[in-house]
Nucleic acid binder design. Structure first.
Lengths: 238, 238
DNA sequence: ACTTTTCGTTAACATAGGTTAACTTACCAA
DNA sequence: TTGGTAAGTTAACCTATGTTAACGAAAAGT
């Protein structure tokens, strides 16, 4: 799988299914192969100019933004199939992109992609859909930090991850591998690690979900969905 | 101004300046005229299917999403020039769009715009940039609710509004008209109205910013920018 | 002009979540 | 295998923000 070209990957993408004609061949970046990053390495730094667009082939990425006081907020944890870095403005990046687990990324020069999408209908379409979806995910994240308490916020996030991983068969039976530390979870949820720990313990005690040794397991989807007010509509791909 | 066509409006748009050739003429929606909405009226409801895309000509819009428990989060307050509703998926809307002040909106069928952007380079470009900017705004909003306290959160938001309005000359000398109630401000910032009131009072007492009778006035930009950690880079249009 | 909402303001009190710190457990590198 | 660092856990205590409620001042409707 890890010498698969971008074209092959896109063909297997839930959004990109329509991209099967050989009209898609002329773009050289489609022959690209993913680049590998070690866990905890940094791909692109906040404040530096970077004209690449990334597509996750495998692993957990981390898109984060730091504040002056040293605090940080994790904007998203892009997973397989997610597109990152569509800023469309030449200027310093607004966030840092790093690898949480070992990560493999397709890297496409922004200009190449931009001109290709203008000429190639399905590709442009796919990109627009992907950005729009990122927008929905961000919106729901904002709902979480703005208006949900620690319990339902955490529950909501863990359900979202399950749903997003499921699209690629990376979660099954309510179980999935999750390399996040409680510190990272805290920076996603806008909480402290200590409180994340309390919350996770509580969720476990209520037999809703457990998160141990790098694995998440949904124990009672019904209770969890009710607590989180989770509705997966916002994650729809097509 | 209020029988201006969409084409005329786009030509005056900071992003859309390049759209001056008459190749832009063939699309009938460019001849559209904005539709007027009264303050507090609802344009599009969360959960209902709506295939329009909106561009704000004037006024303050409100994009919000409700939770089961009755709480709501305001995602954004789109202003002149902002593009709303690019979901790119046929399905129920994720948020409600309403008018805070009197509002005038260009309304474009999603399909018409999508096909036009594929054929017309500058238009597609403009749209991509607009979405990417919405993304930056959302990201910064998430920073606010996730990692800033009430004071800097409020300061940050009020500075953002000033910057966004300035792009159209709708703010000058640090002063701008702002029709938001404290309740609405609370739903933007993820606070309670009571606490917004305290915070606003505090900011006033510290001679940083005042918000009274529908007008915001920056009293000390320096102190305010420091408190908020405000860097307008994320709002850059070109 | 009068009445009725809505909005802003303030105070007293309550609590979810933050802070610090100590300890344990798991992981990693030599 | 072992020692060291990073991660998870728990407890005691603290504080920023939420809650409720009362009142005055604007707006809005008749």
């Amino acid at each position: 799988m890890h010498n698969q070209t971008l074209l092959q990957f896109i063909k297997s993408h839930p959004i990109g299914a329509s991209l099967t004609r050989d009209e898609s061949e002329p773009y050289s970046f489609l022959k690209l192969v993913a680049k590998e990053y070690k866990a905890h390495s940094i791909v692109s730094r906040q404040g530096e100019v970077d004209t690449r667009i990334f597509i996750v082939q495998s692993g957990w990425a981390c898109l984060q933004r730091g504040l002056q006081n040293g605090d940080r907020q994790i904007i998203d944890t892009p997973l397989r199939g997610d597109i990152i870095g569509v800023r469309a403005v030449d200027g310093p990046s607004i966030a840092t992109l790093s690898a949480i687990s070992d990560l493999s990324l397709f890297e496409i020069p922004r200009r190449a992609l931009a001109s290709a999408t203008l000429l190639h209908r399905p590709l442009g379409n796919m990109l627009t859909r992907a950005i729009a979806r990122q927008n929905s995910i961000l919106t729901e994240h904002l709902m979480n930090t703005g208006r949900r308490n620690a319990m339902s916020r955490t529950a909501h996030f863990l359900l979202e991850m399950e749903e997003r991983l499921s699209a690629y068969g990376l979660a099954s039976g309510g179980r999935y591998e999750c390399p996040l530390t409680q510190q990272e979870l805290a920076d996603i949820l806008g909480l402290t690690p200590v409180h994340v720990n309390r919350t996770l313990g509580e969720l476990r005690k209520l037999e809703m979900i457990s998160f141990k040794a790098g694995w998440v397991e949904v124990l009672s989807r019904k209770k969890l969905v009710a607590l989180a007010g989770f509705d997966k509509e916002y994650l729809r791909l097509m």
